[in-house]
C-alpha cells in the first residue's frame, strides 16, 4: 500500500507530471525568449506559458461535427499519460539507479513513440483533411527518425554491455561519461538530430507546418484539449533531452553542485535545439526522410563500427 502511494507520488508529482510539466513550461519560455532575442525582439514575459495554459483551460471546448468524439478526446490524454510515465521512470532511475529493471531502456524507447502516435491518432480522428495530411507526414517522419536513433541506442548497449538504464548510469559513474569516446560522440550527434525531429522543431516541424497545413494535427483542437497537447509537448522538451543526458552524458545527480551541473547540461542541449531551429528553414518531408535514412543512418552505423573498433 505504501508502495502504491509512493508510485502515485512519483507519477503525479515528482519526477512525474507536476515537476516535468512545470519545468517544461519554463523550457518553452526559454525557447520563445531565445528565439525572440535571435530575431531582435524582446520576447514574452517569464510566466507567459503559464498564462497561455490557464487561459486555454478556461476556454470553451469545441468538438467539431466531423470529429470522431471519443478518439478525439482520448488521444491527447494518452500522450500526456505516456509522457508522465516516461518522466517518472527516467527521473527515478536517475535519482537512484537501484530502481532499474531489465530492459527499461527498451521500454523507454517504446514509450517515447506514444506521444507522436497520440498526435497522429488525434489528427486522423479530427476529420479535417489538413489534419489528416499532417498526421500522415508525422507517420513518415517517425519512420524516418526512429531507425538511426535505435541504432545509436544499440551502440550504447554494446558499449556498456547492458540494456538497463541504471547500469548505464552506474557504468558512467565509474568510467566517466560515455561522451568521452569518439564513437559515442557520433552516436550523440545522431541522437541530437533525432531530438530535433522528435520535438517537432524546425527544420523538422513538417507535420505542423503553420504556413502549409496550419498546425496540421492540432488544427481542430481548441481550449483544454489543445492545452493538454501543449503540456505534452512541453514535457517532451524535458524528457527527451533528459534521456539523452542519462545515456550519454553521465546522467543527472540531485546532490550539491551536481544539480547545477545537470541543469547546465540540460540548458546546453535545449539552447542547441533552439539555435538550430532559428537558423534553418523547414525541409520537405521527402528531404527529411531521405536525410534520416541516408546520412543519419550512415552516421549511426559509423558510430557502431567505431565502437566495435574500440574507440
Amino acid at each position: 500500500m505504501e508502495n502504491l502511494v509512493l508510485y502515485l507520488l512519483a507519477f503525479l508529482v515528482f519526477p512525474g507530471f507536476l515537476f516535468t510539466s512545470t519545468f517544461g513550461l519554463v523550457v518553452s519560455w526559454i525557447d520563445r525568449k531565445v528565439s525572440a532575442r535571435i530575431q531582435w525582439r524582446v520576447g514574452p514575459p517569464f510566466f507567459q506559458p503559464f498564462y497561455d495554459l490557464f487561459k486555454l483551460w478556461q476556454k470553451e471546448l469545441i468538438i467539431p461535427r466531423s470529429a470522431k468524439g471519443m478518439a478525439f478526446i482520448i488521444a491527447p490524454f494518452i500522450g500526456l499519460a505516456a509522457t508522465s510515465l516516461l518522466a517518472s521512470i527516467i527521473g527515478i532511475i536517475n535519482l537512484n539507479p537501484e530502481y532499474q529493471f531489465v530492459g527499461d531502456v527498451i521500454v523507454i524507447v517504446y514509450l517515447m513513440m506514444i506521444p507522436p502516435l497520440a498526435i497522429i491518432w488525434g489528427g486522423f480522428s479530427s476529420g479535417n483533411p489538413l489534419a489528416a495530411l499532417g498526421a500522415n507526414r508525422e507517420i513518415k517522419l517517425m519512420m524516418g527518425y526512429e531507425l538511426p536513433f535505435i541504432l545509436a541506442v544499440v551502440t550504447v548497449f554494446f558499449k556498456v554491455g547492458s540494456i538497463s538504464l541504471g547500469e548505464i548510469i552506474q557504468y558512467q559513474q565509474v568510467h566517466g561519461a560515455l561522451l568521452n569516446h569518439p564513437s559515442m560522440l557520433v552516436a550523440f550527434a545522431v541522437s541530437l538530430l533525432w531530438l530535433q525531429a522528435k520535438l517537432g522543431e524546425i527544420p523538422f516541424d513538417i507535420s505542423e507546418a503553420e504556413c502549409e497545413i496550419m498546425e496540421g494535427p492540432f488544427i481542430e483542437y481548441s481550449g483544454p484539449l489543445l492545452g493538454v497537447y501543449k503540456v505534452m509537448m512541453a514535457m517532451l522538451h524535458v524528457v527527451c533531452p533528459w534521456f539523452l543526458i542519462s545515456i550519454f552524458w553521465g546522467g543527472t545527480s540531485m546532490q550539491g553542485w551536481g544539480i547545477l551541473w545537470s541543469v547546465l547540461k540540460f540548458v546546453f542541449i535545449i539552447v542547441l535545439v533552439i539555435i538550430i531551429k532559428n537558423t534553418n528553414p523547414r525541409v520537405r518531408i521527402d528531404q527529411a526522410v531521405k536525410f534520416f535514412w541516408g546520412w543519419v543512418t550512415l552516421l549511426a552505423l559509423i558510430a557502431m563500427v567505431l565502437m566495435f573498433l574500440g574507440y
Binding site: Q39, W40, R41, I202, A209, C211, N280, P281, R282
Partner: peptide, 16 residues
C-alpha cells in the same frame, strides 16, 4: 517568403 518556408529569422530580419 522566408516565413513560408519556415525560416522565421529571415522574416523578422527583413521586416526590421
Amino acid at each position: 517568403a522566408g516565413h513560408f518556408i519556415g525560416y522565421n529569422t529571415v522574416f523578422m530580419w527583413t521586416w526590421k
